Amino acid sequence: MAKYMLLIFGDPKQWDAMTPEEWRAHDAAHAAFNAAAGSRVLRGEQLESPPVATTLRAGSDGGLVLTDGPFLETKEGLGGYYLIQADDLDEVTKLAALLPEVRAAHSAVEIRPVVDHG
């Protein structure tokens, strides 16, 4: 079985504007995803909003530069992830289609295979 990272991107302003009822429906959809995926989910977490991110990169002088906020200025930010095991991309796609971010106009789910160095 291969490992895949599901990266959940969306507009933090849209997430922040969700009502308690919308959050309950959102959480229920994630619970349905977890139930369908079962033991294939190795890990998954919601992340804090992109503005609280810290970025570390090389400076022009060869030193390190620490910056508040995400590295890229984009409308969408990384909101969470799942690490899952699956037989192939088709299986992952069917599972990822259960996530509510796939159908929301402001968000998407990126599927990335994990490199196996073993």
Rank of each mutant, 00 (worst) to 15 (best):
R103Q: 10
T55M: 13
A53E: 11
L89Q: 09
L42H: 01
D68Q: 09
G44T: 01
K75V: 05
S49D: 12
E101S: 10
V109A: 04
D116C: 00
T19Y: 07
D87I: 00
E73T: 13
E45S: 10
E48R: 14
R43P: 00
A108R: 14
R103D: 07
H30F: 14
A29Q: 07
A108K: 02
D61Y: 09
A96I: 03
F33Y: 13
E45Y: 02
L95Y: 01
A86P: 04
P113A: 15
E73P: 01
P100Q: 06
G62F: 08
V109T: 11
H106A: 12
L83A: 08
H117W: 12
L72T: 09
A36M: 07
I111N: 11
A25F: 00
K3Y: 09
G44F: 03
L89D: 01
G62S: 08
E21K: 11
D27P: 00
H117V: 12
P12S: 10
L89E: 07
P70D: 06
L66M: 13
G118S: 13
L64D: 06
E48P: 00
L47K: 12
P51V: 11
A35F: 00
E110M: 02
L56A: 10
S49C: 03
D88P: 00
V109Y: 03
K13Y: 02
P113W: 07
R112L: 10
K3A: 11
I8V: 15
G59I: 08
T74Q: 12
F71C: 02
Y82A: 02
A32Q: 12
L78I: 12
P70I: 06
L66C: 15
